[in-house]
Design a protein around this nucleic acid. Structure first.
Lengths: 209, 209
DNA sequence: CGAAAAACATACTCATCGGTATGTTTCTGT
DNA sequence: ACAGAAACATACCGATGAGTATGTTTTTCG
């Protein structure tokens, strides 16, 4: 009769996290109340505060998991064999796919730590905040390094590395504003869309003369 | 003695608008209080509410002016002579420049009408909201049409027009997250940065074989 | 000048929301 | 079975902030 133990035990925190990510995406951090997050779970405040000490902690955890998704997707691409262009292409494709697959969490990541710049956070939260900022920087650095490597080996056009990295990533990350998953969406359809997104960035729109 | 009339009369609304745009950019719409907007002007609530009926109206007006800046910059580019690629390049450059020049207002535009989706707005505000949404759509349509024209005349690579437009615009608009004007910035330095942003989008990063 | 209107400032109201304190139920280990 | 802890629900507190009502000053105009 272990069947009566309906509720999965360890997933409760993840449920709260998912609910929070959904709410933060739809209404934004400040417009979301803890009651909103609880109500989406068919629950009340008590449950949320049993697992998370504050709204800030909840946001930071969504942000942290969102960044983890991005790194998890990027890591295999970093190990792709080939020249700079080949690796960069794999990285962009992996990133685009991750943005679509986890667009709820990534929407929250985009809101960023900036929403807490003016909050009087605890030292502990300040540390978490700094970790998240560092995490973002390290992510972008992966792209900058690979772009530079591609320019050096002649497989990429010489450009301003920093600006190019921001523009490329921005082009993919902007999808949080227009992509809304449909019921018919599958991992494969998202992957196809990701390829359409990456194509103009790699080859450019301008047809070579 | 018209000199005693120190205060410019018609600029008061614009001052409030500028202050609101700054606050909305820095802290976000919901985290900004009307007192914040007033305090930045060395003033109080009374002044703001004398010119604007509600916080929502204030936000919508910032959004409206922000879109106007974008259209004003885009219009001349639309009239550029040349093939699809030439026109698109001019459009992207104009847009990138406008994003940097008015990055305060455009940051607010990016927050979008979405922040009011859950507000019980008045019919009047609902109309304004719809106008802003339409305005955004028309803006993107300009790019989609020009990209299609470029593909038709062979000057642009064939791609998914809708996705490409969103990716290109996203690459430029993402600058609201990383661009912060320096005291040494001039119209010329911003223009140079805009060119660096547009270059990888037009020619692509991948060096042609 | 003088009266009306515009342009504010000040002082309130009231709803919302983060957080807490305190119950009540459910599980867990012995 | 039963103590204790975990997992919640409920009721409350205090601060914040949008909006308003009512002053007070300044400008405008006849």
């Amino acid at each position: 009769m272990t069947d009566t133990a309906r509720k999965p035990r360890r997933n409760r925190k993840a449920e709260i996290l998912d609910s929070a990510a959904q709410c933060f995406m739809e209404r934004g951090y400040h417009a979301t109340s803890i009651d909103d997050v609880a109500q989406r779970l068919g629950s009340t405040k008590g449950r949320v505060y049993h697992y998370y000490g504050s709204k800030t902690d909840l946001f930071f955890d969504v942000h942290r998991v969102g960044m983890q998704y991005l790194f998890d997707a990027l890591d295999p691409a970093l190990a792709t064999p080939g020249n700079g262009a080949t690796v960069l292409h794999a990285m962009l494709l992996a990133h685009a796919t991750a943005m679509l697959d986890h667009h709820t969490y990534e929407s929250v990541v985009a809101q960023g730590v900036q929403v807490h710049r003016f909050n009087a956070t605890t030292p502990d939260q300040r540390q978490t905040m700094q970790d998240l900022i560092d995490s973002r920087d390290r992510f972008e650095d992966h792209f900058k390094r690979r772009i530079q490597a591609g320019i050096d080996d002649g497989s990429l056009h010489p450009t301003d590395v920093s600006v190019t990295a921001k523009v490329l990533l921005g082009g993919l990350q902007w999808s949080i504003f227009w992509y809304r998953p449909r019921a018919s969406d599958t991992a494969e359809t998202r992957r196809r869309l990701a390829r359409k997104m990456v194509a103009p960035l790699m080859q450019g729109v301008h047809a070579a003369p």
